[in-house]
Write a protein that binds this DNA or RNA. Sequence first.
DNA 1: AGAAATAGTGTCCGCCGGACACAGTTATTA
DNA 2: TAATAACTGTGTCCGGCGGACACTATTTCT
Lengths: 228, 228
Amino acid sequence: MDFLWEGRAQPTRGPKPTLSIERIADTGIAVADAEGLAAVTMQRLAADLGFTKMSLYRYVTGKAELVALMVERAIGEPPASGTTDWRAALKQWAHQLLAAYLRHPWALEAILGPRPIGPNELGWMERAVGILPPTGLTGSERLDAIAVLAGHIRSIAQQSMASPRPEGDFTAMVGEQLRRHGDRFPALVATMAAAAADGGHDQAFEFGLDRILDGLDILIAGRLRSGS
Amino acid sequence: MDFLWEGRAQPTRGPKPTLSIERIADTGIAVADAEGLAAVTMQRLAADLGFTKMSLYRYVTGKAELVALMVERAIGEPPASGTTDWRAALKQWAHQLLAAYLRHPWALEAILGPRPIGPNELGWMERAVGILPPTGLTGSERLDAIAVLAGHIRSIAQQSMASPRPEGDFTAMVGEQLRRHGDRFPALVATMAAAAADGGHDQAFEFGLDRILDGLDILIAGRLRSGS
DNA sequence: AGAAATAGTGTCCGCCGGACACAGTTATTA
DNA sequence: TAATAACTGTGTCCGGCGGACACTATTTCT
């Protein structure tokens, strides 16, 4: 349950371990980066490491624990902040977290559903809540604000997941279906045509981020006005 | 590829099929609702239906297709809108979509990554973009606005996923780790304490929704002012 | 009365996560 | 120094998964 927090107490007797949790997790990360999370199997990692499958179970109690370790290492520690302005700092934080997800898209798959929380994941949250205090929001509001941002980041990262085949692209797929059944979706057809006419390049992340920050700004400005 | 759009042309010769795609998908939905997506196996569905596993492959080319069908049926058609005010309509849409996800939490798992898009999914998008036109936003902006909302909804639904065991709850898990390693996360500890002191009940969805809509409101108001 | 196409079954395969017993290695203890 | 306890890595085995394929039984068209 807390294997993400304290390292195993290393035993005194017995042969020296040749492998390490870190090497196994890093191999898993490399495989997942290159071929996706589905390619991460005990067999595969053992083969890449030159060991047998069962030897890995000396370092990891099961696959769930392995994946949790991979996520924790892949996400890493949050970089330090550069500004004190809450809006600029949150924007920077969002960009950094998005970059981390884009480096390891499989992590989105791995963090679905209830799972143990590691120090790095908590570190990212810590950095974010550390930005907000001087803004006059309540504790719940600060947590909720970060939840919105984190959700937007995950959502965009998920949408940007590189698809192995070109026909997996979401907008292309929508376009294809609209070409066939456009009569059933008139507003969508019109909007996508308009989007293709204007700039049309992919700004979904920046757009959503700016809207959320604008919305927070209003709330914060109101609080500061009524509070002072 | 378009099995979600047109029904199979039914053959003339041969025995009458006893099963149907719909019955199979509905059985899958029932199993997934009750025991999660992992419990949905060909063997299990066949057993529940009183047939052999391989008989299902007469109706469905593989498990991926089955899951796509399950999602399409589970999400269903979007309900009709009640208002013409864009903000109220978007809010209603968001609540309806969230409710749909909460009814079938496993759908979040199933819609990760590139996948075929069905008419119902496109219907939800159609309804959303149909709300926005009279707001002065460009085509790209309207699509991006919906993407932010959809992301927030998915994110909240994912966070609210009922965990089988009580210790799977996210905030509880965070609290537990903070109790042990709180010294490393001072801002987080302070914020969670503050959140427990104020109302503290779960308003993450409404909070984020209102922030996003506020942010959109600013942009729209600005466009209308400069446009007229 | 074929012949052709289909529905459902039974068997088989490779791959997966993982339990378990075993042999070899190392530090402690008698 | 010899015995022993603890540990590492291996080999074997299991149940369950998705799915390929051959086979029989059924239905309809020629």
